[in-house]
Amino acid sequence: LTVQLGNLEWHFDNPEQALKMAEELAKRYQLKVEIDNGTLKFK
Rank of each mutant, 00 (worst) to 15 (best):
L1F: 13
L1T: 09
L1R: 04
L1C: 14
L1P: 04
T2D: 04
T2N: 07
T2Y: 06
T2Q: 04
T2R: 11
T2W: 08
T2I: 12
V3A: 03
V3Q: 02
V3W: 03
V3C: 07
Q4G: 03
Q4C: 11
Q4T: 09
Q4L: 11
L5Y: 10
L5H: 04
L5D: 02
L5K: 02
L5M: 07
L5F: 14
L5C: 12
L5N: 02
G6N: 06
G6Q: 04
G6H: 07
G6E: 04
G6W: 11
N7S: 12
N7R: 14
N7C: 14
N7Y: 12
N7W: 12
N7D: 10
N7V: 10
L8C: 15
L8F: 13
L8M: 13
L8V: 09
L8W: 15
E9N: 10
E9T: 15
E9S: 14
E9I: 15
E9A: 13
W10F: 07
W10S: 01
W10Y: 06
W10R: 03
W10T: 01
H11T: 08
H11K: 09
H11Y: 13
H11R: 09
H11V: 07
H11I: 08
H11P: 03
F12Q: 00
F12H: 02
F12G: 01
F12L: 03
D13E: 12
D13G: 08
N14Y: 07
N14T: 12
N14E: 08
N14K: 09
N14A: 07
N14R: 09
N14L: 08
N14G: 04
N14I: 09
N14D: 14
P15D: 06
P15T: 10
P15Y: 14
P15G: 06
P15N: 06
P15R: 12
P15K: 11
E16R: 12
E16D: 11
E16K: 12
E16W: 13
E16C: 14
E16P: 04
Q17D: 15
Q17T: 11
Q17S: 10
Q17P: 05
Q17M: 12
Q17H: 12
Q17L: 13
Q17E: 14
A18T: 03
A18S: 02
A18I: 05
L19G: 02
L19N: 03
L19C: 07
L19Q: 06
L19M: 13
L19W: 15
L19H: 09
L19I: 12
K20R: 13
K20M: 09
K20S: 08
K20D: 05
K20F: 07
K20N: 07
K20I: 09
M21A: 06
M21F: 15
M21Y: 15
M21E: 03
M21I: 09
A22I: 06
A22E: 00
A22Q: 01
A22M: 06
E23V: 12
E23G: 08
E23S: 11
E23I: 13
E23T: 12
E24V: 14
E24M: 15
E24P: 02
E24I: 15
E24S: 13
E24N: 12
E24A: 15
E24Y: 15
E24W: 15
L25F: 11
L25E: 00
L25A: 01
L25K: 00
L25D: 00
L25C: 07
A26V: 05
A26E: 04
A26P: 00
A26G: 05
A26R: 05
A26F: 07
A26S: 07
K27P: 00
K27M: 10
K27H: 09
K27L: 11
K27Y: 08
R28M: 09
R28G: 02
R28S: 03
R28D: 02
R28E: 05
R28K: 13
R28H: 06
Y29D: 00
Q30D: 10
Q30L: 08
Q30N: 15
Q30S: 10
Q30V: 05
Q30M: 11
Q30H: 15
Q30K: 13
Q30E: 07
L31Q: 01
L31V: 05
L31G: 02
L31H: 03
L31S: 02
L31I: 06
L31N: 00
K32V: 15
K32Y: 10
K32G: 05
K32H: 09
K32C: 12
K32M: 11
K32W: 09
K32Q: 12
K32T: 14
V33M: 10
V33R: 00
V33F: 15
V33C: 08
E34H: 12
E34L: 13
E34W: 15
E34I: 15
E34M: 13
E34Y: 15
I35N: 10
I35P: 03
I35M: 12
I35E: 07
I35Y: 13
D36W: 11
D36V: 14
D36H: 13
D36T: 11
D36K: 09
D36E: 13
D36F: 12
N37L: 05
N37T: 04
N37S: 07
N37F: 04
N37G: 14
N37E: 08
N37K: 08
G38N: 10
G38E: 05
G38W: 05
G38R: 08
G38F: 07
G38H: 08
G38Y: 06
G38M: 06
G38T: 06
G38D: 06
G38V: 04
T39V: 15
T39Q: 07
T39R: 11
T39H: 07
T39A: 05
T39S: 05
L40V: 14
L40A: 03
L40W: 05
L40Q: 01
L40S: 00
L40I: 15
L40C: 11
L40H: 01
L40D: 00
L40P: 02
K41H: 07
K41I: 12
K41F: 08
K41G: 03
K41Q: 05
K41C: 11
K41L: 07
K41V: 11
K41P: 01
K41E: 02
F42Y: 03
F42Q: 01
F42P: 01
F42N: 01
F42M: 10
F42W: 04
K43S: 12
K43E: 05
K43H: 09
K43P: 03
K43L: 12
K43F: 14
K43M: 10
